[in-house]
Amino acid sequence: MPVFRWGNALDAIRDLEREMDRWLRSVNFTVEGIRAGRAYPPVNIYELDDEFLLTAELPGARKEDIELTVSGGAVTLRGSRSNQGDVPEERFRRSERPRGVWERTFTLPARVLEDGLDAELMNGVLRLHLPKAPTQQPRRIPVVERSESPAKPETTGQEEQSQ
Protein backbone atom coordinates (compact mmCIF):
# COMPACT_ATOMS: atom_id res chain seq x y z
CA MET A 1 0.00 0.00 0.00
CA PRO A 2 1.43 3.34 -0.99
CA VAL A 3 2.00 5.59 1.92
CA PHE A 4 2.42 8.74 -0.09
CA ARG A 5 0.00 9.85 -2.67
CA TRP A 6 0.75 12.62 -5.07
CA GLY A 7 -2.46 14.30 -4.12
CA ASN A 8 -1.12 14.96 -0.67
CA ALA A 9 2.11 16.42 -1.86
CA LEU A 10 0.25 18.71 -4.18
CA ASP A 11 -1.95 20.05 -1.45
CA ALA A 12 1.05 21.95 -0.20
CA ILE A 13 1.39 23.63 -3.56
CA ARG A 14 -2.24 24.53 -3.51
CA ASP A 15 -1.88 26.07 -0.09
CA LEU A 16 1.02 28.09 -1.32
CA GLU A 17 -0.96 29.26 -4.30
CA ARG A 18 -3.78 30.26 -2.06
CA GLU A 19 -1.43 32.27 0.07
CA MET A 20 0.03 33.91 -2.98
CA ASP A 21 -3.40 34.78 -4.26
CA ARG A 22 -4.32 36.34 -0.98
CA TRP A 23 -1.09 38.22 -0.82
CA LEU A 24 -1.41 39.50 -4.36
CA ARG A 25 -4.89 40.66 -3.71
CA SER A 26 -3.86 42.70 -0.72
CA VAL A 27 -0.96 44.23 -2.60
CA ASN A 28 -3.10 45.34 -5.46
CA PHE A 29 -5.84 46.66 -3.33
CA THR A 30 -4.85 50.17 -4.27
CA VAL A 31 -5.73 49.52 -7.88
CA GLU A 32 -9.44 49.76 -7.20
CA GLY A 33 -9.73 46.15 -6.26
CA ILE A 34 -8.86 44.85 -9.67
CA ARG A 35 -5.56 43.15 -10.03
CA ALA A 36 -2.92 45.16 -11.74
CA GLY A 37 -1.33 43.95 -14.90
CA ARG A 38 -3.94 44.56 -17.45
CA ALA A 39 -6.77 46.95 -17.80
CA TYR A 40 -10.21 45.67 -16.97
CA PRO A 41 -12.22 45.00 -18.93
CA PRO A 42 -10.05 44.22 -21.95
CA VAL A 43 -11.34 45.96 -25.03
CA ASN A 44 -11.03 45.52 -28.78
CA ILE A 45 -12.13 48.02 -31.39
CA TYR A 46 -13.10 47.17 -34.93
CA GLU A 47 -13.88 49.32 -37.88
CA LEU A 48 -16.75 48.36 -40.12
CA ASP A 49 -18.28 50.12 -43.07
CA ASP A 50 -20.76 52.20 -41.17
CA GLU A 51 -19.61 52.01 -37.59
CA PHE A 52 -16.86 51.39 -35.12
CA LEU A 53 -17.49 48.49 -32.79
CA LEU A 54 -16.01 48.33 -29.33
CA THR A 55 -16.16 44.94 -27.64
CA ALA A 56 -15.34 44.36 -23.99
CA GLU A 57 -15.11 41.11 -22.06
CA LEU A 58 -17.31 41.45 -19.01
CA PRO A 59 -18.13 37.94 -17.85
CA GLY A 60 -20.79 37.80 -15.19
CA ALA A 61 -21.92 41.36 -15.81
CA ARG A 62 -25.57 42.22 -16.04
CA LYS A 63 -27.04 45.21 -17.70
CA GLU A 64 -27.52 46.97 -14.40
CA ASP A 65 -23.86 46.49 -13.43
CA ILE A 66 -22.64 48.65 -16.27
CA GLU A 67 -22.88 52.37 -16.76
CA LEU A 68 -22.03 53.99 -20.05
CA THR A 69 -21.72 57.73 -20.49
CA VAL A 70 -20.71 59.91 -23.38
CA SER A 71 -19.48 63.41 -23.06
CA GLY A 72 -16.95 65.68 -24.63
CA GLY A 73 -16.01 63.25 -27.35
CA ALA A 74 -15.22 60.44 -24.94
CA VAL A 75 -17.14 57.40 -23.85
CA THR A 76 -16.77 56.08 -20.32
CA LEU A 77 -17.59 52.57 -19.22
CA ARG A 78 -17.78 51.88 -15.56
CA GLY A 79 -19.08 49.27 -13.24
CA SER A 80 -18.25 46.95 -10.46
CA ARG A 81 -17.80 43.28 -10.25
CA SER A 82 -18.34 41.18 -7.19
CA ASN A 83 -17.98 37.51 -7.79
CA GLN A 84 -17.42 36.50 -4.25
CA GLY A 85 -21.06 36.65 -3.25
CA ASP A 86 -21.46 35.61 0.34
CA VAL A 87 -18.66 33.09 0.22
CA PRO A 88 -16.20 33.82 3.00
CA GLU A 89 -12.71 34.67 1.91
CA GLU A 90 -11.09 31.75 3.63
CA ARG A 91 -13.10 29.28 1.62
CA PHE A 92 -11.39 30.27 -1.59
CA ARG A 93 -8.76 27.90 -2.82
CA ARG A 94 -8.19 29.89 -5.93
CA SER A 95 -9.14 33.37 -6.84
CA GLU A 96 -8.05 34.43 -10.27
CA ARG A 97 -11.13 36.19 -11.56
CA PRO A 98 -10.88 39.95 -11.36
CA ARG A 99 -13.20 41.72 -8.98
CA GLY A 100 -13.83 45.22 -7.82
CA VAL A 101 -14.67 48.57 -9.29
CA TRP A 102 -13.56 49.38 -12.81
CA GLU A 103 -13.68 52.28 -15.17
CA ARG A 104 -12.36 52.92 -18.64
CA THR A 105 -12.56 55.92 -20.92
CA PHE A 106 -12.03 56.04 -24.65
CA THR A 107 -11.77 59.03 -26.90
CA LEU A 108 -14.14 58.77 -29.77
CA PRO A 109 -12.94 59.21 -33.30
CA ALA A 110 -14.14 62.48 -34.76
CA ARG A 111 -16.39 60.77 -37.22
CA VAL A 112 -18.66 59.18 -34.63
CA LEU A 113 -22.24 60.24 -34.09
CA GLU A 114 -22.35 60.65 -30.34
CA ASP A 115 -26.11 60.53 -30.25
CA GLY A 116 -26.23 57.22 -32.04
CA LEU A 117 -24.29 55.13 -29.55
CA ASP A 118 -25.89 51.88 -28.71
CA ALA A 119 -24.74 48.95 -26.61
CA GLU A 120 -25.72 45.34 -26.10
CA LEU A 121 -24.57 42.76 -23.61
CA MET A 122 -24.57 39.11 -24.47
CA ASN A 123 -22.91 36.15 -22.76
CA GLY A 124 -20.54 38.38 -20.89
CA VAL A 125 -19.45 40.41 -23.89
CA LEU A 126 -20.40 44.04 -24.25
CA ARG A 127 -20.73 45.42 -27.75
CA LEU A 128 -20.78 49.14 -28.10
CA HIS A 129 -21.77 50.41 -31.52
CA LEU A 130 -20.32 53.75 -32.54
CA PRO A 131 -22.01 54.77 -35.77
CA LYS A 132 -19.97 56.79 -38.18
CA ALA A 133 -21.21 60.16 -39.24
CA PRO A 134 -22.47 60.08 -42.82
CA THR A 135 -19.47 60.32 -45.03
CA GLN A 136 -18.98 63.78 -46.24
CA GLN A 137 -18.95 64.14 -49.97
CA PRO A 138 -15.72 65.58 -51.21
CA ARG A 139 -16.43 69.25 -51.09
CA ARG A 140 -15.96 71.28 -54.15
CA ILE A 141 -14.31 74.56 -53.68
CA PRO A 142 -15.51 76.99 -56.23
CA VAL A 143 -12.99 78.88 -58.24
CA VAL A 144 -14.15 82.27 -59.23
CA GLU A 145 -12.82 83.75 -62.33
CA ARG A 146 -12.34 87.44 -62.39
CA SER A 147 -12.32 88.98 -65.76
CA GLU A 148 -10.29 91.97 -64.63
CA SER A 149 -7.22 90.10 -63.56
CA PRO A 150 -5.22 88.60 -66.35
CA ALA A 151 -3.44 86.02 -64.22
CA LYS A 152 -5.81 83.27 -63.17
CA PRO A 153 -5.06 81.33 -60.04
CA GLU A 154 -3.79 77.93 -61.15
CA THR A 155 -4.46 75.94 -58.06
CA THR A 156 -7.85 74.86 -56.93
CA GLY A 157 -7.69 73.43 -53.42
CA GLN A 158 -7.09 76.83 -51.87
CA GLU A 159 -9.76 78.86 -50.38
CA GLU A 160 -10.98 81.73 -52.39
CA GLN A 161 -10.00 85.01 -50.87
CA SER A 162 -12.61 87.58 -51.37
CA GLN A 163 -11.31 91.08 -51.81
Binding site: V43, N44, I45, Y46, E47, L48, F52, T55
Partner: peptide, 14 residues
Amino acid sequence: PPVAEEAQMIYQEY
Protein backbone atom coordinates in the same frame (compact mmCIF):
# COMPACT_ATOMS: atom_id res chain seq x y z
CA PRO B 1 -15.84 35.61 -33.96
CA PRO B 2 -17.44 38.81 -32.71
CA VAL B 3 -17.55 40.50 -36.08
CA ALA B 4 -17.59 39.64 -39.73
CA GLU B 5 -14.23 38.85 -41.20
CA GLU B 6 -14.00 41.95 -43.31
CA ALA B 7 -14.12 44.13 -40.22
CA GLN B 8 -10.77 45.58 -39.49
CA MET B 9 -9.39 45.46 -36.01
CA ILE B 10 -7.98 48.83 -35.16
CA TYR B 11 -7.22 48.33 -31.48
CA GLN B 12 -6.65 45.16 -29.54
CA GLU B 13 -6.31 44.30 -25.89
CA TYR B 14 -7.50 40.73 -25.92
